[in-house]
């Protein structure tokens, strides 16, 4: 009896292992097929001119310069707006705010906000920034909208990172007569910075891929100029790709594939940077 159930348990163990393996292979397989498809179509299209050219009616002459410039300026403004607010809010909620029912309520809501579909943020941005604040379909309106989108992510990441700071370090600081601010700025924040940075980079790489909220607030599909200030109109790489894929000509599909490769590489780089930062930091502060 005993040996029977043991054999059975071993069998279950094996079966489960292979089921898990097959699902992993399936998921990775789909990804690989997609990547091969994209790369085989687009890689030949990537050259210096592709980065340097303005969008055009002619697929071969089209480039991603305005989309790339628009995306980078958009990210720049988004980070400038969302970073200080998100980090300070996270520090306040975790380190200063009282842990009462209201705090719990706010915490749950912030986590929920991180899961709200991005198009909802687009509608909010359209009403608030484009219409009420009369910013129009400008870079700054887009940046404000994306800031709302990534704020919850930054706040949650900041809180998590600060929560991970051992109380023994706070006690050590208070023990020599440090104030709350001295403790927070000299001990807690530097210790948590690695986690906060990781969260920020992940938030930015989320913002990079966003198309829906920007389309809602009226980001243009065709922009023949580089934005020169926050009030200028703009387009971004995902929107450019979206535009190209909706064209009937095969040459534009090639452009789209090439654009996707560029976008993938940027996202990949950012995620890699996030992992590198985290590992480097944790090595430094490990006990």
């Amino acid at each position: 009896m005993k040996s029977y159930s043991y054999t059975r348990a071993k069998l279950t163990d094996k079966v489960f292992k292979y089921i898990a393996l097959s699902f992993t292979v399936f998921a990775l397989g789909v990804l690989v097929v997609l990547l091969i498809d994209i790369f085989s179509k687009g890689i030949a299209r990537i050259n210096w001119d592709f980065f340097r050219n303005l969008p055009s009616r002619h697929a071969e002459k089209s480039g991603i310069m305005t989309a790339l410039a628009g995306m980078l300026s958009l990210l720049f403004f988004t980070v400038i707006i969302a970073l200080p607010i998100g980090i300070l809010a996270g520090i306040y909620l975790q380190e200063y705010g009282k842990k009462n029912r209201l705090a719990k309520f706010i915490e749950i809501n912030i986590s929920n906000l991180a899961g709200v579909p991005s198009v909802i943020y687009g509608i909010l941005g359209l009403t608030l920034f484009v219409r009420i604040l009369k910013l129009g379909n400008s870079l700054i309106a887009g940046a404000l909208t994306l800031s709302l989108l990534i704020l919850p992510i930054i706040i949650v990441a900041t809180r998590e990172a600060i929560r991970a700071v051992p109380d023994s370090l706070r006690e050590a600081s208070y023990g020599v007569g440090a104030t709350k601010w001295q403790t927070t700025s000299k001990v807690v924040f530097p210790f948590a910075l690695g986690g906060i940075l990781t969260g920020i980079i992940l938030a930015v790489s989320r913002a990079i891929g966003e198309t829906a909220p920007l389309l809602v607030i009226g980001a243009l599909v065709y922009v023949p100029f580089i934005p020169e200030g926050p009030k200028d109109q703009f387009t971004t790489l995902p929107i450019q790709i979206f535009n190209w894929t909706s064209r009937p000509q095969a040459a534009f599909i090639v452009n789209a594939a090439a654009g996707i490769i560029v976008l993938l590489l940027i996202t990949f780089l950012l995620n890699g940077l996030a992992i590198y930062t985290r590992n480097k930091w944790y090595k430094k502060i490990r006990y």
């Binding site: 051992p166 023994s168 370090l169 006690e171 050590a172 600081s173 023990g175 001990v187 210790f191 430094k284 502060i285």
Partner: peptide
């Protein structure tokens, strides 16, 4: 304190 708690 009980556990050594030097700053990193």
């Amino acid at each position: 304190f009980q556990k050594p708690n030097p700053f990193p």
